[in-house]
Design a protein around this nucleic acid. Sequence first.
DNA 1: GTAGGGTTAG
Length: 617
Amino acid sequence: MSSVSSLVLRNLELKNPKLLFLESCTTLSQLKIVHAHMIRTHTIFDVFAASRFISISIDKNLLDYALQVFYQIQDPNLFIYNSFIRGFSASKNPDKSFHFYVQSKRNGVVPNNLTYPFLVKACAQMGSLDTGIQAHGQIIRHGFDNDVYVQNSLINMYSTLGDIEAATYIFRRISCLDVVSWTSMIAGYNRSGDVVSARKLFDKMPEKNLVTWSVMISGYAKNNFFDKAIELYNLLQSKGVQANETVMVSVIASCAHLGALELGERAHDYILRNKMTVNLILGTALVDMYARCGSIEEAIRVFDELPERDALSWTALIAGFAMHGYAETALEYFSRMVKSGLTPREITFTAVLSACSHGGLVKKGLELFKSMKRDYRIEPRLEHYGCMVDLLGRAGKLVEAEEFVIEMPVKPNAPIWGALLGACRIHKNVEIAERVGKTLIELQPEHSGYYVLLSNIYARTNKWEDVENMRQLMKERGVVKPPGYTLFEMDGKVHKFTIGDKTHPEIQKIERMWEEILRKIRLAGYTGNTNDALFDIDEEEKESNIHRHSEKLAIAYAIMRTKAHDSIRIVKNLRVCEDCHTATKMISKVYERELIVRDRNRFHHFKGGACSCMDYW
DNA sequence: GTAGGGTTAG
């Protein structure tokens, strides 16, 4: 606001104390009372009074009311237009910011430097690069392209809309870079997935604030570098800087994905010790973290204590139940959520449908799938079709599952066919598997998982020649299987094991421990199952290799390091193989321990020689 | 006036 108009407004307030009154209004009804009183007492309600009303109601996110006032005045000034451009820039209708801008120019109002940051933000929010480029053109035409606020918002706009080169170009020609310029550029690189460039800038920048740290930590987390996110958070801690809620959300989310319960608990403790508010977002992150780290009881406790809940916080818990195979509980919470008056979202259905498929509740799943569209007008997306294929396939209805895929109204993608192929593996159906496997390998020839899956099906049905053919095909095409690893957390340190790992400092002790375990479980009737060993030809070599699977090394280490009968939690990046699954069941019986294994898809609770997945995974 | 946070099938 120019100093002249603010002076006018100040004078107006002195003549009209009701305007001062407005500032203390916090609700729509209070605003309305003052408004009505002004009309009744014939108090002047000119454009300055209106500005006051509009800017206050926009600050309180009462956009509709601001619009009502807007329509009652004659010649809106720049302040009013700017308020609307700002108000709509983060709303669901960011295009209205642009409409107000166009209208202001049509009415002969000249924009100022305060107009553009929000107009640019609106373009980013709209997701329209064309509009963004138009806005940039206007900025140049009006000579604001050297205003650092405007430049910073352009960096954000371009990087949000996928044009990282344009963002970099703006950044390079800013003459007085401030902390927001650096931070926006770092956020931009992170958005484009380039965490290396982001980190380079982060290390280079002269002075960082907490937002900068937050951007870099969440950048790592969003790009699946969860260990890097934790590492950077530890660096922040070592500098003695206090984190805030926003930082902790990324930290908690990273612990969730790493399955690092101890680290997560420690972070939770830090949140409570520093008296941070466990708001909706942080609370949901905590629920998700406990569920993903295998502590579903704690997830429920945090959930129960949340001051407010939305569809996402319920969904985090429901998805947790689904992951653990507690289908009935997931459904119970789903109906409780609906009863509490919340409308389920797309992702809520993904969670309940996956609960049904893990729990083998075919009828209920089909019912929910129908109800989605009928009762909630949610058009099923690929994820939902995927759950249905899994639901039918897992239950052994392979023919129906294949028909479902062929008849679905959306073009099936690779994961849909993958779900069908997974079902063929469980039910040893080579015929459908070959058809589906070939479709998949054509669809994604670079994806190793499908070669492995098909090959494992051949191995399960003793078609060794076909196994060898798959191996050749992968070799010819240069497809590499991503290395499997298993994580085990102890005393706040995450130990990572890979197949045939020789790098762990205690590897010799671990191998001796595994030999001992093997002796004991063999006595109890375990015989090596080598079906899933893709690259091995003769039985002997196969057996020695699967006995170095990362999961087994991690379990051996965990047994070494923990007290007798303590339960053991480990996290894998791939699916658990058949032999490891059998061996772990035996270990749970022989050592009388509960083993909680999180694999790529779900949790396995091993206890007394059985697994909660009922051997379907 | 500009920068940061939760959920997503197999």
